[in-house]
Simulated assay, not measured.
Amino acid sequence: MSILLSHPTKKIKASIELTSSKSESNRVLIIQAILNNAFTISNLSDSNDTKILINLLKSKNSGLDVGHAGTTMRFLTAFFASQQRDVTITGSERMQQRPIKILVEALNQLGSNISYLKKDGFPPIKINKSKKLIGGEIELDGSVSSQYISALLLVAPTFKNGLIINFIGKIVSKPYIEMTISIMRCYGADITWQENKIIVKNTAYQPKNFIVEADWSAASYWYSIAALSENASIEIIGLKENSLQGDSYVAELYKFFGVETTFTKKGIRIAKTTKIDKESIHEVNFEDFPDLAQTFAVTAAALNFSIKLTGLSTLRIKETDRISALKNELTNCGFNVAIENDDLIIFPSKNTSLVENKI
């Protein structure tokens, strides 16, 4: 089957109501579960990951299957380790290839009893009922997935001695950790971030109703539509100027593609200008917002940019190897793309036609 997407005028005018943030939803759901559903969450994400998390948090079964949901796997591992309950957690074939050893080792060091049922360091895992986690001080490589760190932080206030994380090396994906900390503070957590150390004290979360913001990651696709248009005015409802989401940086990134953002009472309005800047941008580091890399890369290629995308190492262990997938599919479309370690390099492709070069 072959599908061709096109627009007769390349002039876009629309009003869009986005899905809610999966990142915010999943973090608040863990806190809600810790508090035995003592508050309500409005505007929850309808993503599969969030639906799976909701169902498994409610489940009384001893065997849980997260499917492809990576965030759910990490968050539930830490949550059930803190709940004094026997649980087995597994997932899809791809999930069983995604590492979890760093998180498991950290939790075991803090007092849990987690073992592997197949391959060492990978799901499925067995969480054996143990006493209330003592907590304490651990060391983590700063370059690990922020999901490991967020999983530990969310349950840390329940630890008898709290939690101190000392990071070794540079910390990547900082905005996702900052989002976790901001949400925790919203519920009364006593948490301090001092350079390469995060300190969480033993405190009780306090119930508070929460409204989930729209998803900035999803907004990135509309930014790309605007960038690839000749003229665009798109209203996107539900986004905030002072967002907790690191992917709100998309508003800055897409200025290079000639897309300007204006904040309104309802959300934002994005517009295409003629200010495409190919000269001042040759390399972008995506360490702080890796989920924007795919959308940005495709847009850059389509606009014939010569650019290097760095800071992509965490994309290797997603539901697929996203770096290789980007190179493969852009190459299939006729673009000139190379991989250098964990970096993606896009070269100008003057005569590429997406009609002639089908995926």
Results as ranks from 00 to 15, higher is better:
residue 5 L to I: 14
residue 62 S to I: 12
residue 314 T to K: 10
residue 335 F to R: 01
residue 8 P to C: 02
residue 139 E to K: 15
residue 55 N to W: 04
residue 83 Q to R: 10
residue 94 R to I: 14
residue 67 G to Q: 11
residue 210 F to G: 00
residue 247 D to I: 13
residue 296 F to A: 03
residue 165 I to Y: 04
residue 313 S to D: 06
residue 233 S to K: 15
residue 47 S to T: 09
residue 92 S to I: 10
residue 314 T to N: 08
residue 193 W to E: 02
residue 301 A to R: 06
residue 222 W to R: 06
residue 233 S to T: 15
residue 271 A to S: 15
residue 190 D to M: 05
residue 174 K to Q: 03
residue 49 D to V: 07
residue 184 M to F: 09
residue 280 S to I: 07
residue 72 T to F: 08
residue 284 V to R: 08
residue 275 K to Y: 08
residue 327 K to W: 10
residue 218 A to V: 07
residue 145 S to K: 01
residue 47 S to H: 07
residue 186 C to M: 07
residue 48 N to G: 02
residue 203 T to D: 04
residue 190 D to Y: 03
residue 337 V to M: 06
residue 285 N to V: 10
residue 342 D to Q: 11
residue 323 I to E: 00
residue 68 H to L: 14
residue 190 D to S: 11
residue 14 A to C: 03
residue 35 L to Y: 13
residue 23 S to M: 07
residue 113 N to K: 15
residue 236 I to G: 00
residue 280 S to C: 06
residue 8 P to D: 04
residue 299 T to A: 13
residue 75 F to Q: 00
residue 39 F to S: 01
residue 98 R to G: 01
residue 287 E to R: 08
residue 116 Y to F: 15
residue 202 N to C: 09
residue 28 V to W: 05
residue 245 Q to V: 13
residue 300 A to E: 08
residue 238 G to S: 10
residue 4 L to G: 02
residue 247 D to P: 12
